[in-house]
Amino acid sequence: MIEITRQAIDPQPVTASVRRDSNGAVVTFLGVTRRHSMGKAVLYLEYEAYEPMALKELAKIGREVGSRWGLQDVAIVHRVGRLEIEDVSLVVAVASPHRREAFEACQYVVDRIKETVPIWKKEVFEDGAVWVGCQSHEPSGAGARSAEDRPVPASQASGD
């Protein structure tokens, strides 16, 4: 299950979609809209996606989990549009035979979404608004990203 939706997300069907009798562990992550950011009260958030590309990038992350952990049971649902405080913006569910891989892979998926998937978040405050990630992290340096299937030596792979 890989989806982008404008509706409220119910986490239960997302979790259910990765369950099967060979899996002993299911890890579900919820991303939830926070009240405060940068010391200020957030009124609401706006998420915007380049949907066809975002869906492809989400599917790639699922395949990366397959390559890294050998897991196939990954579900990702991201909400876009206007979200109020405490609304769920993201649900990721990963299942595996044993818990360690499920925890690791779930964290990997969430981290990776924030690196590669063209979905943007705007925080709206009483006195203005900011696109998150655009304040101090405008990309710099030469070259766009490499092809996804290009081998990357571990010593050169970038971390956060």
């Binding site: 380049y50 981290d111 996804e148 571990a154 971390g159």
Partner: peptide, 23 residues
């Protein structure tokens, strides 16, 4: 052609970040 501003977590897109994630 789509121009892609930094995504919501910041940073720039890159290849799979497998380094430093050993078990």
């Amino acid at each position: 052609v789509a121009l892609i501003p930094p995504v919501s977590g910041g940073g720039r897109p890159g290849p799979p970040a497998f380094a430093g994630r050993d078990h």
